[in-house]
Nucleic acid binder design. Structure first.
Lengths: 336, 336
DNA sequence: ATTAATGATGTAAGCACTTACATAAATGCT
DNA sequence: AGCATTTATGTAAGTGCTTACATCATTAAT
């Protein structure tokens, strides 16, 4: 069933059918109705490939994501997909894992599929150190690239992010202001936003003129689900004689591990140990006590990101950076 | 840059270039190399739309999912996408929400995109009651449909599932065998597998000849994140005088709520209250004590499902039903 | 060396649309 | 009514591939 069949049955040319299909102007209402009726009757749907070939677009956006099974990223993907579809776009999902080579390969794959734009979810795609982001810049020459929670100065790259630096700084300051100076900063990612968070922690110490100690900046090297691993990790630090009365974590699951550690050592939270997480995920209410955490308004971020994306595709002028601030959600794991 | 440009530069016909591109037989190695070199040199990539039009396929599979931000479904989507891509297929993600009309609309959308197959993640797509699954059967006339954790007898519909009935039956039996007869069954979904789980609970009672009481089958009507809501819900039941010494939940988040409820009422887990969850998610290790839960080997399920999908697309004969059994993972919330 | 079989390449006709341009119909104006 | 616009429709040329079929080159077999 093609546009020809419809045109024949309706007694018009294929151009007219095409016009009806695309809602172009200048089709006589009577003709339009006749064509639509026949289309309805035959259950005809235009061939998306042919249309794609003609228009050089299938209204498709690629979503690149390291690991969509991660609590936070999964939500991001979900919000982005829903917003995209509401705007008339399809989403091609591509989970890359954390290997830079896979990321590059996946990006190429999407470009070869001729997506209209690529949304990169999570700052893992941005090299925080060396700055080897050439593959993104190259891609940006073909289609607009949207980054969630990452920053890259480059034409045709649009960034929508939460101010992770400030959020972590605020969280740390809140504790310092209470006189808690031995705050362990626990993180599990050296991604772009991972660095930003770490810097936020450090800068809070600088602001308060409290000396920083590298011992208190600990990197946890484990999976995103290994809460027990985090607990053990902290136990080891404790046994090595490191004393800390607060944990600021770059992710809720690390904070959940800290809560577990406290329980295992009969430490009262927050009296003996204050704990602050990040992302305000379900883990914060699952733990006992519930965990104070930074909410970075992911839904808003994603909605804005997709607006920017679609706007750009429609040829509108869009801001290249949009920054939202996070918010510390107070719960029982701190007394601030 | 098209196949014509390449053919000109290489001094061959477009057919030959196409053959090289598709790895067809019968191209002289020398010619092949020349063509590949030029392709490499020019950075040419074939136009996916044109190819799709010619082949009537873009090697794309639709993933339909009610809510990919849900812990369990997010993992499913992740595993499926990775397996699909490893097999050379792209994934178009479509999150429908829980409205049946949206599900139908989304399915149509995917079919109009001319995906090669549709994978429906989660039994929410199957009407457990009325049996109004005609929209799936209709779709199956166009492309093979894969169902995860759902069952539907229909040609061209392939089902890969965990035996939720048996898993819940086993979990319930384990408690009954310990002499705990007042087991509260807590569920939050009337989906196909939701029903199966409930039936499993019921059948355990029948097997043991313990009388069933509807009061002990409670439906929680709330979001997938509202652990506090679950806690309150149980509190209310408790206040109304319902006595129970165990909770079997259809999802870990409900079990997490039960743990919270126990703490709020100074009940010892598992001495005063045994708790069993479902899905073996991160919530089971986040809670204190950790929660006994059914693991239904999601990764295996997804891998098998994608195998079936790709096999079918390649024209191989594939089993229409594949059933895996779940496994009760014992943790501190039970003493079995 | 001649023929048959096989291998390598080219030609051209799809695939199902969009759209620039041409043409025909309808309307407005004097 | 006659002409100029505007509106509606049709024609045909892309869009960039795949592939059946035809053709030519090469090798094997007699």
């Amino acid at each position: 069933m093609t546009i020809y069949d419809i045109s024949k049955q309706a007694g018009v040319s294929i151009a007219t059918v095409s016009r009806v299909l695309n809602g172009s102007a200048n089709v006589k209402p009577k003709t339009k109705k006749k064509v639509l009726d026949i289309i309805e009757q035959c259950g005809y749907t235009p061939n998306a490939f042919a249309r794609g070939l003609g228009l050089n677009s299938m209204n498709t956006v690629g979503i690149l994501c390291a690991d969509s099974s991660d609590l936070y990223l999964a939500k991001a993907v979900y919000y982005i997909e829903r917003n995209l579809r509401a705007g008339g776009y399809h989403s091609v999902l591509c989970c890359t894992g954390y290997d830079p080579e896979d990321m590059k390969a996946s990006l190429s794959l999407l470009l070869n599929q001729r997506v209209d734009s690529v949304i990169m979810v999570g700052s893992t795609f941005i090299a925080a150190e060396s700055g080897d982001n050439q593959y993104i810049k190259d891609a940006a020459q073909q289609v607009p690239i949207m980054l969630l929670n990452a920053d890259l100065d480059c034409p045709n790259v649009y960034c929508t992010m939460c101010d992770d630096f400030k959020s972590t700084q605020d969280a740390t300051l809140a504790l310092l202001n209470k006189g808690i100076n031995d705050i362990l900063y626990l993180y599990n990612s050296n991604s772009y936003s991972g660095k930003k968070k770490l810097n936020g922690y450090q800068s809070a110490y600088l602001m308060k003129d409290v000396p920083l100690n590298k011992q208190y900046q600990q990197f946890f090297n484990g999976t995103h689900e290994d809460i027990d691993g985090v607990c053990k990790f902290l136990n080891d630090l404790h046994k090595k004689g490191l004393e800390f009365h607060a944990v600021v974590a770059s992710e809720d699951m690390l904070a959940a591990g800290a809560i577990k550690y406290a329980k295992a050592n009969n430490l009262s939270v927050p009296d003996d140990l204050s704990v602050i997480g990040y992302n305000n995920s379900i883990l914060t209410t699952c733990s006992e006590p519930e965990i104070t955490s930074v909410d970075n308004h992911l839904e808003t971020l994603c909605s804005q990101l997709v607006k920017t994306c679609i706007g750009t595709l429609l040829g509108e002028e869009m801001p290249q950076k949009t920054i939202f601030s996070g918010e510390l959600v107070h719960r029982a794991s701190t007394a601030l």
